[in-house]
Amino acid sequence: MKILTATTETQGEREGDFAFTIEGELVWVGLVCARDERDPDNGGCGCGRAFSGLSSHRATTTARVSDLDLTRDDVITAYAAYLESAGYGIFTASDLAEEVDDMLDICESWEVGDIIGRRLDVLGPRTIGRPGRRSG
């Protein structure tokens, strides 16, 4: 299944890039603080441009579309474990199904190996002009 994973590929191509995640860990589109909502490029913490690592609880501005041997239920379990360990509470599969399905749908619009960036709720390719790249 296609899913987003942390990568350092293309790091440094954009001012303000950072990668504190573990290469290859599952990442998610995390919450955005009020300062970054107003200005994701200069808001302060960078959360408006970052993906959250589900294992490391750290962030990166680049994610790779990876084809992993996971099921939808595996992804739901990983996301639920991340939320619980981050202190957000305990969530059931039905609580998270729509959000996970939305992320999986987004991943289907890109090719395996595409490097994705984020600016608030907009995800798109980090490198323009490569054959087969789509913004979703």
Rank of each mutant, 00 (worst) to 15 (best):
M1I: 06
M1K: 14
M1A: 13
K2E: 09
T5R: 05
T7F: 07
T7Y: 07
T8K: 11
T8V: 04
T10A: 07
T10W: 04
E13W: 11
E13D: 11
R14A: 10
E15C: 04
E15D: 12
E15I: 09
G16R: 05
D17N: 09
F18M: 13
F18L: 15
A19H: 15
F20K: 14
F20Q: 14
I22A: 07
G24S: 10
V27M: 03
W28E: 08
W28G: 10
V29P: 12
V29N: 06
V29K: 10
G30V: 04
L31F: 05
L31E: 13
L31T: 09
L31I: 02
C33P: 06
C33G: 06
R35W: 03
E37P: 00
E37L: 13
D39S: 14
P40T: 03
G43A: 07
G44P: 09
G44W: 06
G46D: 02
C47Q: 04
C47K: 05
G48R: 06
R49P: 00
F51Q: 01
F51W: 10
S56A: 14
H57Y: 12
R58W: 01
R58P: 00
R58F: 03
A59D: 03
T60Q: 02
T60N: 02
T60R: 01
T60F: 02
T60S: 15
T61M: 02
V65P: 00
D67P: 00
L68G: 02
L68E: 14
D69Q: 13
D69L: 10
T71Y: 10
R72P: 00
R72V: 07
V75S: 03
I76H: 02
T77D: 15
T77W: 01
A78Y: 03
Y79V: 07
Y79Q: 01
L83E: 01
L83C: 02
E84A: 15
S85D: 15
G87I: 10
Y88A: 12
Y88Q: 08
G89I: 11
F91S: 06
S94F: 00
D95T: 07
D95C: 09
D95P: 00
L96N: 07
L96H: 10
A97R: 13
A97L: 07
E98G: 11
E99S: 14
V100I: 12
D101A: 12
M103T: 13
M103K: 08
M103P: 00
L104M: 15
L104W: 08
I106K: 12
C107A: 15
S109Y: 02
V112W: 05
V112F: 05
V112D: 12
G113L: 08
G113Q: 09
D114G: 00
D114S: 15
D114N: 14
I115M: 01
I116K: 00
G117I: 04
G117T: 09
R119A: 13
L120E: 04
L120K: 14
L120F: 04
V122S: 12
L123R: 02
L123Q: 05
G124M: 13
T127V: 15
T127M: 11
I128S: 03
I128R: 06
G129M: 06
G129I: 06
P131M: 05
R133F: 01
R133C: 06
R134H: 10
S135C: 12
G136H: 04
G136A: 12
